[in-house]
Design a binder for these strands. Structure first.
Lengths: 142, 142
DNA sequence: CTTGTTGCAAAGCGTTTGCAGTAGA
DNA sequence: TCTACTGCAAACGCTTTGCAACAAG
């Protein structure tokens, strides 16, 4: 999802395209991993000296409500990223070094996971954590 | 894990067995699902009028550090439960109604999930959410 | 011009800390 | 007795709110 696509979607909803939102849109469309509100605040703060945290939160919530951003609750806090563009159901490999994600088509629910008859499955979560090739060759691995 | 086992483990570490900790131990050993700090505070508050939240947090952290309690970061907050007694690697079905968990032996990592050669897997998470038989027959389902 | 957006300040919530009194071993 | 534990109060970090000034359409 490009920055322009995000902005168009916002404009279509009657939202105003401010300078800040332009920066926010391109930040997320360029981001390869997850961003915390703090990440966003620090990045945006470089350009907007008077930036306040509440505006960051307001815009993050807005984009999340508009289904543009996905929100994850991780152990070290809340993180955001643009919704996966892939249409088919899939899961992710998540790099512990750079937090980039790689899609995996494999889904455990389609491959033999047996649940008791009386358990009604609503949703499931399958995530693999580790280090991507780039982080393994570099020195980022803890 | 029984309340006594928890208390013995604490005593062995040189910790003191207070009335509050006795209650806490039996609360967790009897609990079928996850408990939030607030749950614990409210339950314990019934017996100890002057109870304070910080003591609840201190004891939860203590039991977590001692590897007696497991801590989960869920979307609606942090929750605790006693560590699974099962020895073998397994995953869980989690009931959205009563939050009880059912173990499943199936593990996606042992059943054909293919990851790129250069991705080094460290850990994984597989959880199935839904409604257990009891909650389906009752009226607890939203 | 009209209404959405922003920054500020303040409050909210969940969690942690320092301290002095209390109670377990 | 001695030291760990507790409650109190206060502080903390993250997030949300009300309000008045501002800027996009």
């Amino acid at each position: 999802m490009t920055a322009d696509e995000i902005l168009q979607k916002m404009a279509k909803e009657g939202l105003r395209i401010t300078e800040q939102r332009k920066t926010l849109a391109s930040l997320f469309s360029d981001a390869e991993g997850y961003l915390t509100p703090k990440d966003v605040y620090e990045f945006m703060g470089k350009r907007y000296s008077g930036l306040s945290f509440d505006t960051v939160y307001r815009n993050l919530r807005l984009l999340h409500d508009m289904n543009i951003l996905e929100q994850f609750v991780m152990e070290d806090g809340v993180k955001f990223r643009v919704h996966c563009s892939e249409h088919s159901h899939h899961h992710h490999l998540i790099c512990l070094g750079c937090e980039r994600t790689l899609p995996v088509a494999f889904c455990p629910m389609e491959t033999g996971c047996e649940v008791p008859d009386d358990f009604q499955v609503v949703r499931h979560k399958f995530e693999v954590y580790g280090y991507c090739g780039e982080c393994r060759s570099g020195a980022q691995q803890p």
